[in-house]
Design a protein around this nucleic acid. Structure first.
Lengths: 185, 185
DNA sequence: GTCTATAGTACGATAGAC
DNA sequence: GTCTATCGTACTATAGAC
């Protein structure tokens, strides 16, 4: 493969998923991922911070969407969270859905990856809280709304992998379920 | 120091906190922690899975307390979570409170440690959910209650570090605040 | 693209408790 | 003697510096 073959990042993601699937995450070296993608280890580390990151790409974009969603939402905490989830929907493509189950399986089978996943979700929650604070929401209300939002995101993601369709719609329904449960706590 | 000096684990924890405080987490090697504790790297890894674990000890005990608390609680999700938090209180000693601020500062300054912290909290939540499912709570209700419980645990911990006293009381109040906020979502 | 530091593993040897 | 905590050493792989 040539030096300027396009989509280096995507090729790395696909190669990593394939290799993790074939031989397990622990038994796969970064150099091997790079090799299968027709690249070198150095190039890998130019695209991803570490070995795990290849499974968690696009987080910065999602954080930006969360901020934008909350900034443009109505003045009610869970309404802001809903706007954030809806804004995130643009990144939930068909290809992402196709890779989702394999990705989840790899993450579930490894502690390091579950750590990264937990931190990622905590980062989403923190960004939601910060954005809501800037909109004048009280800290406690913002924290509660954000945690419920993350729960809805998780549940919505799992459901979306199963049924497909528009992620925004699925997430909205998931959040409504979570809100109803929280109200009768 | 002799081979059988007592409290090896505690010595490692203290040495680690001191070194992380003096020179930062990244600039501290495991071998250095062991050396200051009068031990070797091998012994360190007999006590802790990895470099981070020295800041997160005692998790297994807490999981057991959560399970026991929920098993013996009344048949209402947030009541079960409250019982879990109260049961955890026995591990919140004065020494732990004394080390708390330094520990939090080290964790806040490092991504790897924040990952471990996030996974630890996710583990608590998962254990709460599983225990509640065994008590017949619906999955959604259990997940919501557990997330609210983890939020109360975080807020209660921060408050307990400030004001001290009985952790059970502080956590109970924190959970009541969180519940009130959730109900008017 | 090569090299270094170090996290983390594997395993046998050893020293003390019992 | 057994048991267990500790030690010593050799090893691999990752993160990152040069």
């Amino acid at each position: 493969m040539g030096r300027w073959e396009p989509d280096a990042r995507d090729r790395l993601v696909r190669a990593a998923l394939d290799l993790f699937d074939e031989q397990g995450y622990e038994n796969t070296a970064v150099a091997q991922i790079a090799e299968r993608a027709g690249l070198t280890k150095s190039t890998y580390f130019r695209h991803f911070r570490d070995k795990r990151e290849v499974l968690f790409g696009g987080q910065d974009e999602l954080l930006g969407l969360i901020v934008a969603g909350i900034e443009g939402a109505q003045a009610e905490p869970l309404g802001m969270v809903e706007a954030a989830l809806v804004a995130m929907a643009v990144t939930f493509s068909e290809e992402r859905r196709a890779n989702g189950p394999r990705r989840l399986a790899v993450i579930a089978g490894n502690d390091e990856l579950r750590e990264r996943d937990a931190l990622k979700m905590a980062g989403f929650a923190r960004t939601m809280v910060d954005s809501m604070l800037r909109r004048g929401v009280a800290e406690l209300d913002a924290q509660v709304a954000a945690e419920l939002g993350i729960l809805a995101l998780r549940r919505g993601y799992a459901q979306w992998l199963e049924v497909g369709g528009d992620f925004a719609e699925v997430a909205r329904r998931a959040l409504e379920e979570v809100r109803a449960a929280a109200r009768e706590c």
